[in-house]
C-alpha cells in the first residue's frame, strides 16, 4: 500500500506529526540484565531492541579458523522475534538482510573498539529485536554502543546512528524536496533513505548504508541531516551513560 506523502507539502508535518528534523522518542536503559557482561535496552519510537554483550572471552573455535590471533573478533547475532512486525512472521537465521546487518555492525565496531587489547578473544553482541518500526540498523547500532560501554570494552567514542530520507523520489519537484530525519516504518517503505552512523563529535562517518535509489543532488542534504541527527542521539546516549556512571560512583562510596 503506497503511503500518501503528498500531504507533507501542505503543513510540513509528517504522518506522525513530526517536523522534518525531529527524532522520534528515544529511550535507553543500560545494564538491564544481570547475567550478561553488558546489556542495554533501546527504543527509537516503536522500534525496540535488547542488546547483550558477552566477552571479551576466549575463542571457542580453533584459533586458525577466525584468522586473527592478535586482536579480538567482534561477532554479531541478530534475532528478530516472531511478534515484532505487524503480522506474525518467523524469520530464519539465514535471512540475507539480517546477515548483512550483522556484518555491517561487526565491521563498524571492529574499527572503533580497541580490539588490539584483547588478542585471541571474541566479543559477541547479540541483539533481540522485539518490535519493528523503521530505522532498524540505526537502533541496533545505538543499542550495541550502550551495551559495549556497559561491558566495559574500551572504545574510541560512541557510535551513534540515525536514518535520513528525502520527501520525494521524482525529479520534478527537486527544489521543494525536504530531507527528513529518523524515518518510521511506513516512511521507509515509501521514501528513499540512508542509515548513517558517526563516531564521536567530529562528524566522522563510520557507517553509511543506502539501499534505495535517490537523486545525487539530494544525497548531500540527507547526509547533513543524518549526521546532525547522530549528534542529537549522542547527547541522549551520553546522558544515559553518565547517569549510570553516577549511580555506580554513589554505590562505591558507601
Amino acid at each position: 500500500m503506497p503511503l500518501d506523502t503528498s500531504t507533507y507539502s501542505l503543513a510540513l508535518l509528517r504522518l506522525d506529526g513530526r517536523r522534518w528534523n525531529e527524532l522520534r522518542r528515544l529511550t535507553a536503559q543500560i545494564s538491564t540484565q544481570a547475567s550478561a557482561d553488558g546489556s542495554s535496552f533501546l527504543s527509537m519510537g516503536n522500534t525496540k531492541v535488547i542488546c547483550t554483550v558477552t566477552g571479551p572471552s576466549e575463542v571457542k573455535a580453533a584459533p586458525g579458523a577466525s584468522g586473527r590471533g592478535d586482536e579480538a573478533v567482534v561477532s554479531v547475532e541478530i534475532s528478530v522475534a516472531g511478534f515484532s512486525g505487524v503480522e506474525r512472521k518467523r524469520r530464519g537465521k539465514g535471512d540475507k538482510r539480517i546477515y548483512e546487518m550483522q556484518t555491517t555492525i561487526a565491521t563498524a565496531f571492529q574499527a572503533t573498539l580497541f580490539t588490539h587489547l584483547y588478542p585471541r578473544s571474541t566479543i559477541t553482541i547479540s541483539l533481540h529485536i522485539l518490535s519493528l518500526d523503521g530505522s532498524l540498523l540505526a537502533t541496533c547500532l545505538n543499542a550495541s554502543t550502550l551495551a559495549l560501554i556497559d561491558a566495559g570494552v574500551p572504545m574510541r567514542d560512541y557510535i551513534c546512528a540515525t536514518t535520513a530520507g528525502s520527501t520525494s523520489s521524482y525529479s520534478s519537484n527537486d527544489e521543494k524536496a525536504d530531507p527528513l530525519l529518523d524515518l518510521n516504518g511506513s516512511e521507509e517503505l515509501e521514501l528513499p533513505f540512508l542509515t548513517v552512523a558517526t563516531c564521536g563529535t567530529e562528524d566522522e562517518v563510520s557507517v553509511l548504508v543506502m539501499e534505495t535509489r535517490v537523486q545525487v543532488g539530494r544525497l548531500e542534504g540527507m547526509l547533513a541531516v543524518g549526521v546532525d541527527g547522530c549528534k542529537q542521539v549522542r547527547d541522549i546516549l551520553d546522558v544515559v551513560v553518565r547517569a549510570r556512571g553516577k549511580r555506580i560512583l554513589e554505590g562505591s562510596q558507601l
Binding site: Q33, A34, S35, A81, G82, F83, E87, R88, H128
Partner: peptide, 16 residues
C-alpha cells in the same frame, strides 16, 4: 520476567 540470577525471558502473544 527477570530472575534474580539474571536469567530473563520475554513472551509475546499475537493473534490472527
Amino acid at each position: 520476567i527477570c530472575f534474580d540470577d539474571g536469567t530473563e525471558a520475554i513472551v509475546g502473544a499475537k493473534a490472527e
